[in-house]
Every structure is written in structure tokens, then in C-alpha cells.
Computed example of a mutant assay.
Amino acid sequence: MQYVTEYRDREKAAALSEEIARQTRTDRSYRFMEFCGGHTHVLSRWGLTDLLPPNVKMIHGPGCPVCVLPVGRIEMAINLALTEKVILCTYADTLRVPTSKGLSLFNCRALGGDVRMVYSPMDALNLAKNNPDRQVVFFAIGFETTTPPTAVAVKTAKNLGLKNFSVFVNHVLTPAAMEHILKSASKNSPAGLLDGLVGPAHVSTIIGSNAYEGFAKNWEKPVVIAGFEPIDMLLAILMLIKQTNEKRHCVENEFTRAVSPEGNLIAKKLMKDVFTLRKSFEWRGLGQVPFSALKLADEFQDFDAEKRFNMPELHSPDNKACACGAILRGEKEPRDCKLFGTVCTPAHPMGACMVSSEGACAAYWRYAPKGSGVQKTTK
């Protein structure tokens, strides 16, 4: 584990913090958005924001795959379990997201829904093989990181000729969301005042650093791809500060040990073979985002759960008291939500940002310092 501990070295962190302070100009502010929820957890877990000068602000973006899934899509999955009586399989974080009706995939099991947690799409496919008399649906969510495994499962199901396996596809695309945030920004919104972007780590291993060139060129915003260790994050922030000071806007890759310019060519081909773009898709907090999500290509339509079960599209409002949407847009922080840490806790979440292991609210709750005002009650 020496390779990891080198990226958690206290002296290196202190040196980077001092260099950030030296490079930061006192006559201006710096606002950088970390798109990935994993980076939000890195900042909170290691207390990195406390090492930054007061005029360097990190803005949390919509990089939590469970958080950005709108309520209506979860209600569609619940309907599959309760009405169509399928075996519904999905990842753990998705199970506890509350809907407008007060239901979740987890508690709909008490109403007779057969909902199961899986670790991969192949687990769902194996359930279909072992239960030929039941329809099995995989509730697929996530960014480009989790999309290739879904593609493998669909191709395998086609090769096996499985008739009782299908996928409810909710895979979304990182660059489209980043583009939407920048396009919809006005001079008075936090997103409009961004000085740079921290590129996600896991997603970038798939799509590569070249995928962000448009943001640097067209929006004149520096992008630095960062790993998930504290040294990674501090170094990425320093690189963004230097680009901002020098009025440069290019893509830099701090996470060279895992991310290449072209990305994972095999994974990208899998996605291209199995999926095609949706014209539009609803995101929690962002609304309808053009060409931001995937659906199965014509060749694999037999495995599309939306077509197999004639699923109606549902659109439901978020809890009005929950600030999850504003947090995903970078307009608020978790502590700005009046529910945070009181009514809304990990034991009784009111919104997806508290449920997901990558959610900003979950990060603030888990790593809140003493005296921060967060009441860690689970009653």
C-alpha cells in the first residue's frame, strides 16, 4: 500500500498548502467546481478546504449518479416491482432514495416488491438464468464508469438468447452535464462565476482527458483531472490556480497514473455498440438536459425494459423543503438546507444527496468537525 500512502503524506500536503497560499492572489477570488461526488468526499474527509486560503472556494457539482436521478425514474422502477412483479435488481445506494409518495425501492419490498441489491449487472443476469419463470430487470444507473458493465450484460444476454432479462437504462453522460451547467449559468449564478473545473477521476479513466478539450477551448475554463487522494486534490487545485493566474485555459491531467488522453478504447467501443443517445433526459436539479443520457441501440431493443413493459414516463417533484437540487447545481451547500442534520440524516434521508455514498450531504454529515453545528442524531 506504499503507493497509496505516498498520496496521503502529511508533509507533502503541508508543502502543497503553503504553495497554494503563495500562488493565490489576494486581489481576486477563485471558484472551482469539483464535478465528482467522490472529490467532495475527499475534500470533506481530509479537511482540505481548511487548508485553502479564504478566497479559494470549492463548489460541489452534480457528480453523484444516484443524486441526479429524478424522482420519476425511481417511481417507474417501483412500479415495475409492484405492478409487473418482476425481480428488480439495482445497486445499494439506489434502494433508499425517497420518492414524492414516501416510498423507496427498499420499503416497497414490504408491499410485495421483489427488489434485490446486486454488485454488478452480471448478478442480475445470473438471476435471470436461474429463474427462467420470472422476468428480471436490472435498474441501470451511473455515469460512464458503470455503463460498460451494463453493455457487457446486455451483449451476453443477447448471445445467450435470454427472454426474461431486460434493463431499465438510466445511464447519464458527464460532459453533457458540465456543458449544461455552463450554458445555463447567468452572471448572478454561482456556476456563472466558475474559474475552473476539477475533472472526475473514474469517469475520465473511461472517456479520457481529451473529452474535456471543448470546455477549455469554448468556455475558456481550465480543467484539471484529479485522483481521489488528498495530495491529488491539493495538486489539482494548485494547477487550477496557476492556470487562472496565467489566464490559461487548457486540460491538464494530474491523475496520469490512471487516465490517458484517449481513455479506455475497449470500454468506449462497448458503449458505442450497445447504446445510443437520448434526445433529452431529466436530471434532478438540472431539469431536461439535451443529449445527456443513453438508451439501448436498435439491435438490443428486445432487452429494453421501458419497451417490454410499456413503461409510462413519470415526472414527479422533489421535496420542496429539500435543497438537493440546488446543491447539485452548485448554488447551495448542505448546511444551507434547513433539513440537514435535523430532519434529514443518513438513517432517515429526505433527499438523494444524503442517501448516496457520493452525495454532498452524506459527506458533510460523515466528516463534520466538532462544533460545526451538525446534530448527529439518528432518532
Rank of each mutant, 00 (worst) to 15 (best):
L160V: 01
I231H: 06
Q2K: 14
N210E: 12
H41S: 13
F106T: 00
E179C: 07
I141Q: 09
V203N: 08
T26W: 11
S184C: 10
N264W: 07
S29I: 02
A321N: 10
Q301D: 12
Q2L: 11
T99V: 04
G199W: 12
T83I: 09
Y3I: 09
E299Q: 15
P349N: 03
V118P: 07
R22A: 15
A305T: 00
P334G: 05
G63S: 01
L160M: 14
V42F: 09
C89G: 01
H39N: 07
P290V: 01
R278F: 00
T377R: 14
A363Y: 08
G341M: 02
R73Q: 03
I225F: 07
S204C: 07
K57S: 12
T156W: 08
A293L: 07
T147L: 11
A201E: 07
T146W: 12
K370D: 12
F309D: 00
K155W: 03
I266Y: 15
E333N: 13
R116Q: 12
A14Q: 15
L160G: 08
D273Q: 12
N188C: 02
V274M: 08
V167Q: 10
H39Q: 10
V259W: 06
P200W: 07
A110D: 13
L235K: 15
E331K: 05
S100F: 02
Q23D: 00
H171D: 04
K12T: 15
E229M: 06
L82T: 02
N164H: 07
F139T: 00
V118E: 10
K320G: 00
G371C: 05
A92E: 14
R257K: 14
E313N: 11
T377D: 13
K307D: 07
T40C: 06
K12G: 03
A77R: 07
D298M: 05
F165G: 04
A185R: 08
C361R: 05
A201L: 09
G196Q: 05
A226K: 02
N79W: 10
E220L: 04
M311P: 00
A347Q: 13
I78A: 15
R22L: 12
C89T: 12
M354E: 02
A267F: 04
G359E: 04
L51C: 02
A267Y: 05
S17C: 06
T26S: 14
A267V: 01
K57H: 15
A128T: 05
W365I: 01
H39D: 01
K320R: 11
P175A: 06
K187I: 05
L43C: 07
L51S: 11
G214T: 03
A360S: 15
R31A: 08
K85V: 00
L235P: 00
E358T: 00
V42A: 14
V223Q: 04
T90K: 03
V224N: 00
S29G: 12
R366G: 11
R31M: 02
T40N: 09
G373A: 02
C64A: 03
N245L: 10
E11V: 09
E84S: 11
K187S: 12
L162S: 06
I231T: 09
V259P: 05
S260W: 00
L48P: 10
G102R: 04
K370A: 09
L234V: 04
G330W: 06
